[in-house]
Amino acid sequence: MRPDRKALVLTTTINGRPALRTPDGRSVVLALTDEALTPAESVGARSHSLLSIGVTKPLRSGGEEMLARVLDELLPALVPDTEPVPAVDTDGMMPYVSTPPAPRGGIVDLPIPTQTLQLCTAMRENLGLQPPRYTDSTKVYVGSCQATRTGGREDASVGIHYRFETETFPDTVAGRPAKLGKDSVTVLLRDDAWCTVKIKAADAVPLAERLVPVLLGG
């Protein structure tokens, strides 16, 4: 699995999903969402979810068929029938709809707009944080949630991010690997995914200690 901002160039389909197959048949990239056929910037998301699978040695007889069979069996588990992804406008905003976090850390497997709604719901309904004054509480920005504890200006910002391969997490917050910064903390939500939540606030660590278990517990 890997994120990408570019539009996938379609050359074939596998199990009904758009796919790009290299001429030698040794590598296949599949779009896990239809939005991957459009540049990420135009759909209000940071990146698309793409599945890459390939072999490093020349394929033996029947190797391409084996590759296709693996994909046919794997894709239904990765792309189940679910609710439609929330619509995002040209400003990168979407309507706020109460969306409880998915169980067992499932938030990391969802499209960024759905992750955002689950994040904002956890902040509003579980932590009691409210949108800053003078903002439209009926909308949220894709990928982040702003909040206030004073009823006035923003004093906390929380966002969904994807870690770099070389990024390390030397600290521990809420029982998870984390990286502390100046008035911020980044927490790796699950060991098998590169999805992190970054909290910016004067009390970022205590806020993370409350928020992360909600996001992972569902």
Results as ranks from 00 to 15, higher is better:
Phe169Pro: 11
Val140Met: 07
Val173Trp: 01
Pro170Ile: 11
Ile160Lys: 12
Ala174Asp: 04
Gly181Cys: 07
Thr138Arg: 08
Asp171Glu: 12
Thr138Asp: 09
Ala178Val: 04
Lys179His: 01
Gly152Asp: 06
Pro170His: 09
Pro177Asp: 06
Thr138Gly: 06
Pro170Thr: 08
Ala156Trp: 02
Thr168Leu: 12
Glu154Asn: 09
Gly159Cys: 05
Glu154Arg: 13
Thr150Tyr: 04
Gly159Ile: 00
Thr166Lys: 12
Glu165Leu: 13
Cys145Met: 11
Arg149Ala: 00
Thr172Cys: 02
Asp155Leu: 02
Phe164Gly: 15
Gly143Phe: 05
Lys139Thr: 12
Gln146Lys: 06
Gln146Glu: 06
Glu154Thr: 10
Lys179Ala: 13
Gly151Ser: 03
Phe164Glu: 14
Ala156Phe: 01
Phe169Val: 10
Gly175Cys: 09
Arg153Leu: 03
Tyr141Lys: 15
Arg153Cys: 00
Gly181Glu: 03
Thr168Arg: 14
Asp155Asn: 15
Glu154Val: 07
Phe169Gln: 10
Phe164Asn: 14
Glu154Met: 14
Thr172Gln: 14
Thr172Arg: 14
Tyr141Met: 14
Thr172Asp: 05
Gly181Met: 05
Gly181Val: 02
Ala156Ser: 10
Ala156Tyr: 00
Thr172Pro: 03
Pro170Phe: 07
Ala174Leu: 13
Glu167Phe: 11
Gly151Val: 00
Ala178Pro: 06
Val173Tyr: 03
Ala174Met: 13
Gly152Pro: 00
Thr150Asn: 12
Lys179Asn: 03
Thr172Gly: 02
Ala174Tyr: 08
Ala178Trp: 00
Val142Asp: 08
Pro177Trp: 01
Gly151Asn: 02
Lys179Ser: 11
Ala178Leu: 05
Arg149Gln: 04
Ala174Ile: 12
Val142Leu: 11
Tyr162Arg: 15
Leu180Gln: 12
Thr138Asn: 05
Arg153Asp: 06
Tyr141Trp: 04
Val140Lys: 07
Arg153Ile: 00
Thr166Met: 08
Thr138His: 03
Lys139Gln: 13
Ser157Met: 10
Thr166Cys: 04
Phe169Gly: 11
His161Ala: 15
Gly143Ala: 08
Thr168Trp: 02
Tyr162Gln: 15
Gly152Asn: 06
Gly151Thr: 02
Gly175Ser: 07
Asp171Trp: 10
Ile160Ser: 03
Leu180Cys: 02
His161Gln: 15
Leu180Ala: 09
Arg149Trp: 00
Gly143Thr: 09
Ala174Ser: 11
Arg149Leu: 01
Gly143Ser: 08
Thr168Pro: 05
Glu167His: 12
Leu180His: 11
Arg163Trp: 00
Ala147Thr: 06
Pro177Ile: 04
Phe164Thr: 13
Glu165Ile: 12
Cys145Ile: 07
Cys145Pro: 12
Arg163Gly: 06
Gly143Ile: 08
Thr172Ala: 10
Pro177Asn: 08
Lys139Val: 13
Arg163Glu: 14
Ser157Asn: 15
Leu180Arg: 15
Gln146Ser: 14
Arg153Gly: 03
Lys179Phe: 00
Ser157Phe: 00
Phe169Ser: 12
Pro177Tyr: 01
Cys145Phe: 05
